[in-house]
């Protein structure tokens, strides 16, 4: 029997596969397709204090090996998320989830995080300081070490849940950011969010995305993600969630070699709604092929 279990922040996850925020809605809609209880956990759609409609359409542009999205954190607001969306999810998913939180100001982050304190369904908060699609916030918190430090510190003071800080790849030195949030008291780090990119319409010469720029993700960013997960895991003493372009069980193994304890799958869910299921079912076969008994043993490379 292959052992897929991993320990992360004191909790045993049945496997390391977690759908990435924004690519799995609030989860329950996927339960029409398969029993989502097989998932290690679920990172829900980025949640903000107030409801947000998000950006104008088009929000999506195709790229070689991926897509650009500029959703702009559309969500019904934290109150509805806690009292409605998580309740619906609870009917079809027994385990706890990871609540992804976005915001424009320290106040907004802090107030949103507080609202999850009493949510038994929530295992941890994933603090999104790396969303490229909202103005005057989001990524602005994730590209300056001091700003990130201050925010994480403020959030840590009010939260009863572990804080996972989600880092942006749109920085010169990702290690510096990781160290800043570590010293502010972050419990874990997840990375990478999307890379800022754009596409033009060939016929009109205008940007395809209404918001002009958006976040690029998918298999095209996989090597960048591996490199950043590796660099951060070498530099900090926090557990890491790795993501960016993961689409197969082999990708998961490599991401764990790079230092990830959990692995999130994003864009692949959009083009293949069964992606996470296929990866989970394929992992034992791939472990067998590579002579791996315990998945946990390969975090940070083979010993």
């Amino acid at each position: 029997m292959k052992n897929l279990k991993v320990n992360f922040l004191g909790k045993v996850f049945k496997n390391p596969i977690v759908p990435a925020s924004g690519t799995f809605g609030f989860g329950y809609e996927f339960s029409d397709l398969y029993d989502i209880n097989i998932l290690g956990s679920i990172s829900i759609k980025g949640t903000t204090l107030e409801p947000r409609y998000g950006n104008k359409l088009p929000r999506i542009a195709e790229c070689p090996s991926g897509l650009i999205n500029a959703i702009g954190l559309q969500n019904p607001g934290v109150d509805k998320v806690v009292t409605e969306e998580l309740v619906k999810l609870d009917e079809v998913y027994a385990d706890q989830i990871i609540a992804n939180v976005g915001g424009h100001s320290t106040y907004e982050y802090v107030e949103t995080v507080k609202k999850f304190n009493n949510s038994d369904k929530t295992f941890a908060i994933e603090l999104n300081i790396s969303c490229p699609n909202v103005t005057g916030g989001g990524m602005a918190f994730g590209v300056d070490p001091q700003t990130a430090y201050d925010l994480v510190k403020a959030v840590k003071e009010v939260s009863t849940k572990p804080i996972i800080v989600k880092l942006s790849p749109n920085v010169t030195n990702v290690v510096e950011m990781a160290k800043a949030v570590e010293s502010a008291g972050a419990d874990a780090i997840s990375l990478i969010n999307t890379l800022v990119g754009m596409r033009f319409n060939l016929k009109t010469g205008k940007p395809i995305i209404a918001n002009v720029k958006g976040g690029y993700s998918g298999p095209g960013i996989y090597p960048v993600a591996l490199r950043m997960v590796y660099e951060v895991s070498q530099a900090v003493n926090l557990p890491i969630i790795g993501m960016g372009g993961v689409s197969t069980a082999y990708d998961v193994i490599e991401m764990m070699y790079a230092g990830a304890s959990l692995v999130m799958v994003g864009a692949q869910n959009l083009i293949d709604p069964y992606a996470c299921k296929k990866i989970i079912e394929d992992l034992p076969r791939v472990m067998d092929e590579l002579n791996i008994e315990n998945l946990e043993d390969i975090i940070g490379g083979r010993k």
Binding site: G22, G25, E29, F30, R59, A61, N69, I208
Partner: peptide, 22 residues
């Protein structure tokens, strides 16, 4: 019509504003 990321409700890529909300 809208440019779609998934086509089955997961990504919010195609959300429009309506008189009854998004």
């Amino acid at each position: 019509e809208a440019r779609m990321g998934c086509g089955f409700g997961a990504c919010m890529g195609c959300s429009i504003e309506t008189t009854k909300g998004p």
